[in-house]
Design a protein around this nucleic acid. Structure first.
Length: 418
RNA sequence: GGGAGAGUGUCCCGAGCGGCAAAGGGGGCGGACUGUAAAUCCGCUGGCUACGCCUUCGUAGGUUCGAGUCCUACCUCUCCCA
C-alpha cells in the first residue's frame, strides 16, 4: 500500500488528495528525511471560508499531523489582481481594514484545524500584502521580471486559452502569475518553505514559482495539486440554494452544516469521508461498502465527523440528535434554528405569509410564500398551510411553547415568543 | 484613427413584426416516487397593501396613444481595416 516512504505523501495519496506532483521521489525523500514547510494560498475576499476551501485546509491539516509545518497564506496582495485562470470579472479591491477583519474571521477557522501556538503548534499565517504592497516596480522588474520569459508565459494554458479565444487579457491579470511565483520564493526565503499546494487549476502558477526559485536562489521547490472536487452528478461543491456553505457558525449553523453533509449523493460518500473526515481508512472502507438504504448510516457518520471538525464534537452531536428527532421521529427538537418574536405580536396574530417570509426568511418574499402555499410546500406544526390568509396565534404554540414552520420536508425553523 | 456587431428577467445561457412582466433552456425551489440520495415525472421561478398597482431589457434623452423593439448621444465589450 505504501507507495511512498513519507507518511505525509502516503496519507494524502491514500485519501485522494493528490492530482499532480513535481518530482515526487525527491519530495518524498525530503518529507521522509525531516520536517518540511509547505503553504497554500487563500483568497481573503470574504470574512469566512466555505466548503470549497475545506480541501486545501485538510491538506494543511495532514501536513501538520504528519510532523511538518503548514503555512496558510492570505492573498491580501494578489487578491487585488485576480487570477486569469478563473473568471474574467475583475475582483473587488478591499480596504486594508476589511482585509484585516476578514483575516481575523479566517484565522478563527484555521485555528480549528491547525495549531498555531502552544504545544505542537508551529503553523504560520502569512499575508502576501506584507511584501507585495511594498514592492518597488523598477526593482521588482529588474530582480524578478528578468527571470520571466514572455514567450513561455504565453504558452501556459491559462494564458493560451484566453488568447486563442481572442478574449481580453489585461496586463494586470497577466502579472498574477508573476506575483504568485514571487510569493513562493519569498516564503522560501523567509521560512524555508519548499512546497506549494493548491487546486489543480493552480498547477501552472505553482510551477512558475518553482522556476523562479531555481533562477533567483537556486532553491529546489515542489508542487502538489489536488483534484477538482465535484459531486457525482457534476456540480461544484459548496453551493446550495441559500448560498455558499460557510464554515462560520454565525453564517451557517452547525445544524445546517450537518444537513449539508447528510445530503451527500450516494456516489460521493466514501470519497468525501476520506477527504473531509479524519476517520481511519479501514473504518471508511467499512462505511463505504454499505449499499442502498444502509448507506444512510455512512452519511450520518460523514455529517457528524465533518461537523465535529469545524464546530466541535458537542455541536456535531447536537446537530445529529436534532436531525434524528426531526426526520426519524418527526418530533420537535430544540436545536432547530429558532427565531424569536414578540409575544404581543403573536397575540395580535401573525399572517402566515409574514411569518414565513419576513420572520424566518424561509422564503424570499410574500409572493414566494403564496406560491409555496399553492404548491403545498409550507407547513405549520407539520400541517400543510391551507390558505394564505391563515393567521398564527398563541393557539398554534405547541406544548414546548414554539411554533414549527417548515418549507418542504427538509427546512425547519421554530418561532419562539419572548 | 476608420468600419461592422453586441449588451435582455440582479444565478447563467439565450429568443424577442412597436401592445411585453417579455419565448425557450440550464440552475434553483416545491410536489410525486424514494432512503433526508440519484434518476424520472409534475408545478413554480420580478415586487406589492393584489381581479389592481409598481419596477425591469447597458446609460441618458427623443419620436409615439404606447418602446426591449424606432431615432440621438454616451459607456462597455467583440470583430474587421489602418
Amino acid at each position: 500500500m505504501s507507495a511512498y516512504k513519507s507518511d505525509f505523501l502516503n496519507v494524502l495519496a491514500e485519501r485522494g488528495f493528490i492530482h499532480q506532483m513535481s518530482e515526487p521521489e525527491a519530495l518524498d525523500a525530503r518529507a521522509k528525511a525531516g520536517k518540511i514547510t509547505a503553504y497554500i494560498g487563500f483568497d481573503c475576499t470574504a470574512a469566512s471560508l466555505h466548503v470549497g476551501s475545506l480541501l486545501p485546509i485538510m491538506m494543511l491539516y495532514w501536513l501538520q499531523q504528519t510532523g511538518h509545518r503548514p503555512i496558510a497564506l492570505m492573498g491580501g496582495g494578489t487578491t487585488r489582481v485576480g487570477d486569469p485562470s478563473g473568471k474574467d470579472e475583475s475582483r473587488r479591491i478591499l480596504t486594508d481594514a476589511m482585509i484585516e477583519q476578514n483575516l481575523a474571521g479566517i484565522r478563527a477557522i484555521f485555528s480549528k484545524f491547525l495549531k498555531f501556538e502552544g504545544a505542537g503548534g508551529n503553523a504560520i499565517m502569512a499575508n502576501n500584502a506584507d511584501w507585495l504592497n511594498k514592492l518597488n516596480y523598477i526593482d521588482f522588474l529588474r530582480d524578478v521580471g528578468k527571470h520571466f520569459s514572455v514567450n513561455r508565459m504565453l504558452a501556459f494554458d491559462s494564458v493560451k486559452m484566453r488568447l486563442e479565444r481572442q478574449q481580453e487579457l489585461s496586463f494586470l491579470e497577466f502579472n498574477y502569475m508573476v506575483l504568485q511565483a514571487y510569493d513562493f520564493v519569498e516564503l522560501n526565503k523567509r521560512t524555508g518553505c519548499i512546497l506549494q499546494m493548491g487546486g489543480s487549476d493552480q498547477w501552472g502558477n505553482i510551477v512558475s514559482g518553482i522556476d523562479l526559485g531555481r533562477r533567483m536562489t537556486n532553491a529546489q521547490l515542489f508542487a502538489l495539486t489536488s483534484p477538482l472536487i465535484t459531486t457525482s452528478s457534476g456540480a461544484k461543491m459548496g453551493k446550495t440554494a441559500a448560498g455558499a456553505v460557510w464554515l462560520d457558525a454565525n453564517l451557517v449553523s452547525p445544524y445546517d452544516y450537518w444537513q449539508y453533509w447528510r445530503n451527500t449523493e450516494d456516489g460521493d460518500v466514501a470519497r468525501f469521508l476520506k477527504l473531509f473526515t479524519i476517520l481511519p481508512l479501514d473504518e471508511i472502507a467499512r462505511l463505504g461498502a454499505l449499499q442502498g438504504q444502509d448507506l444512510n448510516e455512512a452519511k450520518k457518520v460523514l455529517a457528524t465527523e465533518a461537523t465535529a471538525l469545524v464546530h466541535g464534537r458537542a455541536a456535531a452531536n447536537e446537530a445529529s440528535e436534532t436531525s434524528r428527532k426531526t426526520f426519524e421521529e418527526g418530533l420537535f427538537a430544540g436545536a432547530l434554528p429558532t427565531v424569536e418574536i414578540a409575544r404581543a405580536e403573536l397575540e395580535r396574530g401573525i399572517g402566515v405569509l409574514t411569518a414565513f417570509a419576513e420572520k424566518t426568511g424561509l422564503v424570499s418574499s410574500n409572493g414566494d410564500a403564496r406560491r409555496q402555499v399553492k404548491a403545498g410546500g409550507l407547513k405549520v406544526n407539520d400541517v400543510a398551510v391551507s390558505g394564505e390568509k391563515m393567521m398564527l396565534t398563541p393557539k398554534d404554540l405547541t406544548t414546548d411553547g414554539v411554533i414549527k414552520l417548515s418549507l418542504g420536508r427538509k427546512k425547519h425553523v421554530l418561532l419562539k415568543p419572548v
